[in-house]
Deep mutational scan, measured.
Amino acid sequence: GSSGLPPGWQSYLSPQGRRYYVNTTTNETTWERPSSS
């Protein structure tokens, strides 16, 4: 899909309704949208 996220990243919603991002390669999580640069 065209999520616009860098490879390996997925976006999720927290129980509070906030969006966060997870790097499935490194298990890093961040509130900031990852850049593909």
Rank of each mutant, 00 (worst) to 15 (best):
G1I: 12
G1S: 14
G1E: 15
G1R: 11
G1T: 12
G1Q: 13
G1L: 13
G1H: 13
G1K: 09
G1Y: 05
S2W: 04
S2E: 15
S2A: 12
S2P: 12
S2N: 14
S2T: 12
S2K: 11
S3F: 14
S3V: 14
S3D: 15
S3K: 10
S3A: 12
G4K: 10
G4W: 11
G4N: 10
G4E: 12
G4T: 11
G4Q: 12
G4H: 09
G4I: 09
G4P: 13
L5N: 03
L5Y: 03
L5R: 01
L5T: 04
L5E: 15
L5S: 03
L5Q: 03
L5K: 02
P6V: 04
P6L: 05
P6T: 03
P6K: 03
P6G: 04
P6N: 02
P6E: 04
P6W: 04
P6A: 05
P6F: 03
P7Q: 07
P7M: 07
P7C: 06
P7L: 08
P7R: 07
P7E: 10
P7F: 08
P7N: 08
G8L: 04
G8N: 07
G8A: 04
G8K: 03
G8D: 07
G8R: 03
G8Y: 06
G8W: 06
G8P: 10
W9N: 01
W9H: 00
W9R: 00
W9Y: 02
W9T: 01
W9E: 00
W9V: 01
W9L: 01
Q10A: 11
Q10V: 15
Q10Y: 12
Q10P: 01
Q10F: 11
Q10D: 11
Q10W: 07
Q10N: 11
S11K: 04
S11I: 09
S11P: 03
S11M: 15
S11F: 05
S11Y: 05
S11W: 07
S11E: 15
S11T: 11
S11V: 10
Y12A: 10
Y12N: 06
Y12V: 10
Y12M: 11
Y12H: 12
Y12S: 05
Y12E: 05
Y12I: 09
Y12L: 10
L13D: 07
L13Y: 08
L13Q: 06
L13H: 05
L13I: 11
L13K: 06
L13M: 09
L13F: 07
L13G: 01
L13P: 04
L13T: 08
S14Q: 02
S14E: 06
S14M: 02
S14N: 12
S14I: 01
S14P: 01
S14K: 01
S14V: 03
S14W: 01
S14L: 03
P15M: 06
P15F: 04
P15S: 09
P15Y: 05
P15T: 08
P15N: 07
P15Q: 08
P15H: 06
P15W: 04
P15A: 09
P15V: 07
P15I: 06
P15R: 07
P15G: 06
Q16S: 15
Q16E: 15
Q16F: 06
Q16W: 06
Q16T: 15
Q16I: 08
Q16R: 08
G17Y: 02
G17Q: 03
G17K: 03
G17T: 01
G17W: 02
G17S: 02
G17N: 05
R18Y: 08
R18T: 12
R18E: 14
R18V: 15
R18P: 03
R18K: 14
R18S: 08
R18Q: 13
R18F: 08
R18L: 10
R18N: 11
R18H: 10
R19M: 14
R19K: 09
R19V: 15
R19F: 10
R19W: 15
R19L: 14
R19H: 07
R19T: 12
R19P: 13
Y20N: 00
Y20D: 01
Y20R: 03
Y20P: 00
Y20A: 02
Y20I: 08
Y20K: 02
Y20V: 08
Y20M: 06
Y20F: 09
Y20S: 00
Y20G: 04
Y20H: 02
Y21P: 01
Y21E: 00
Y21M: 00
Y21Q: 00
Y21L: 00
Y21A: 00
V22R: 06
V22Q: 05
V22L: 08
V22Y: 11
V22A: 04
V22P: 01
V22S: 03
V22W: 07
V22E: 03
N23V: 00
N23Y: 05
N23P: 00
N23S: 04
N23G: 00
N23K: 03
N23F: 05
T24R: 05
T24Y: 08
T24K: 09
T24A: 09
T24P: 08
T24D: 07
T24M: 11
T25M: 14
T25K: 11
T25A: 13
T25Y: 14
T25G: 07
T25D: 12
T25Q: 13
T25V: 15
T25P: 01
T25S: 12
T25W: 12
T25L: 15
T26Q: 02
T26D: 03
T26P: 00
T26W: 02
T26N: 05
T26K: 03
T26A: 02
T26S: 06
T26I: 03
N27R: 09
N27I: 02
N27G: 15
N27D: 07
N27V: 02
N27P: 03
N27A: 08
N27T: 05
N27K: 11
E28P: 00
E28F: 05
E28A: 05
E28R: 03
E28K: 05
E28V: 06
E28I: 05
E28M: 05
E28D: 06
T29P: 04
T29E: 09
T29G: 06
T29A: 11
T29D: 02
T29V: 15
T29W: 15
T29K: 13
T29Y: 13
T30S: 13
T30E: 03
T30G: 03
T30V: 11
T30P: 00
T30A: 07
T30H: 06
T30W: 07
T30R: 11
W31Y: 11
W31K: 04
W31T: 08
W31N: 06
W31E: 06
W31G: 02
W31R: 04
W31A: 06
E32N: 07
E32A: 05
E32S: 07
E32L: 08
E32K: 10
E32Q: 10
E32I: 12
E32T: 08
E32Y: 11
E32M: 07
E32H: 08
E32D: 10
R33G: 04
R33E: 08
R33M: 09
R33N: 13
R33T: 08
R33A: 11
R33K: 13
R33I: 11
R33Q: 09
R33W: 11
P34H: 02
P34G: 01
P34D: 01
P34Y: 01
P34M: 02
P34K: 01
P34E: 01
P34T: 01
P34V: 02
P34C: 05
S35Y: 10
S35K: 10
S35A: 13
S35G: 14
S35Q: 12
S35W: 08
S35I: 13
S35H: 11
S36K: 10
S36Q: 10
S36T: 12
S36F: 14
S36G: 14
S36I: 13
S36R: 09
S36W: 15
S36N: 11
S36L: 14
S36D: 14
S36M: 14
S37Q: 13
S37I: 13
S37R: 08
S37P: 13
S37T: 13
S37N: 12
S37V: 14
